[in-house]
């Protein structure tokens, strides 16, 4: 069985402070996990703010280099990707989704330019028509069409539409892995489920593996197959999503689980009121 992504003893530390009293701050501390190619899955990385989850995502995307440890994507150590062509090849296979859809597109530029650039660089569409067809196909996969997006500026689209456009853009290169950092935390409640459900569809129909980074246990439970719980940079628990989240073992996971506000508390809180 071939491994899609293997993260091995990954550590990232930052130096803090000035000339005097420099201290090391370890954001990600010896994290290891791996995803298999044969079984596309949604792999949730759960952590609170400061747990190092975004740093981990950046390293997987190769936009930040680790202090130590190795990330292999389809067997290749990604820190060895030096040339522009290697990097493009890597980006064709690994694509990001961002937290804030209205920030993910340049507000002064039309949204479609990112779709067309992706089609040009990753799908080899040299002609204008080819690019439009590729963009349209990708947009159809997320329930949009080029007609709705073409020529529009980000502020003319809703948060949900923008996030789906961002996903469509990531899909143009037919990636094997999508790294989504808090993709729904800034999306409104009435639009959130459309994005979450879309991830499921991507996994089931397009066989894309997704690293889903979140602080929200409920959506993680709803869509992910496996979860990794991160506390202050360390993995405290990892395993099947249902199991870890319904019967957590590690005290931290237990505490997280207990802290979730449940709707069933409605009864308890309001019996007096």
């Amino acid at each position: 069985m071939s491994t899609l992504l293997s993260v091995d003893n990954l550590t990232k530390s930052f130096a803090r402070g000035g000339i005097f009293g420099r201290t090391e701050f370890v954001a990600v501390d010896h994290v290891s996990f791996s995803l298999e190619s044969a079984t596309p899955e949604i792999f949730a990385i759960i952590g609170e703010s400061g747990s190092g989850k975004t740093t981990l995502a950046r390293m997987v995307l190769n936009t930040m280099s680790p202090s130590s440890g190795v990330i292999r994507f389809q067997g290749t150590d990604i820190s060895r990707l030096r040339t522009g062509r290697d990097r493009l090849q890597f980006m064709r296979k690994v694509q990001p989704i961002f937290q804030n859809p209205s920030e993910a597109f340049n507000p002064l530029k039309r949204v479609d330019r990112y779709l067309f650039a992706s089609a040009y660089h990753f799908a080899g569409c040299r002609s204008r028509d080819g690019r439009e067809i590729a963009a349209d196909e990708a947009l159809k996969k997320v329930g949009l069409s080029l007609a709705e997006v073409k020529g529009r500026f980000p502020h003319e689209l809703s948060g949900g539409q923008l996030q789906r456009t961002a996903i469509a853009r990531a899909l143009i290169s037919s990636p094997a892995l999508i790294v989504a950092d808090e993709p729904v935390s800034m999306v409104d409640a009435s639009l959130r489920m459309s994005i979450v459900n879309l991830f499921k569809t991507l996994r089931d129909e397009l066989k894309v593996s997704i690293v889903y980074i979140t602080h929200d246990l409920a959506t993680a439970y709803y869509i992910s197959d496996r979860v990794l719980i991160l506390q202050k940079g360390k993995v405290v628990e990892m395993g099947s999503a249902r199991q870890v989240l319904s019967e957590p073992h590690h005290p931290y996971t237990v505490r997280l689980r207990e802290s979730i506000l449940s709707l069933d508390d409605v009864e308890r809180v309001h019996t007096s009121g």
Binding site: S158, S190, M193, Y221, S246
Partner: peptide
């Protein structure tokens, strides 16, 4: 109704349906 129905919760795996359109 949509807001309440679409809330994900642990222990509940029934598909949540999204609302079309935007505010």
């Amino acid at each position: 109704r949509h807001l309440v129905a679409s809330l994900p919760r642990i222990g509940d795996l029934t598909p949540k349906i999204a609302l079309t359109g935007a505010p």
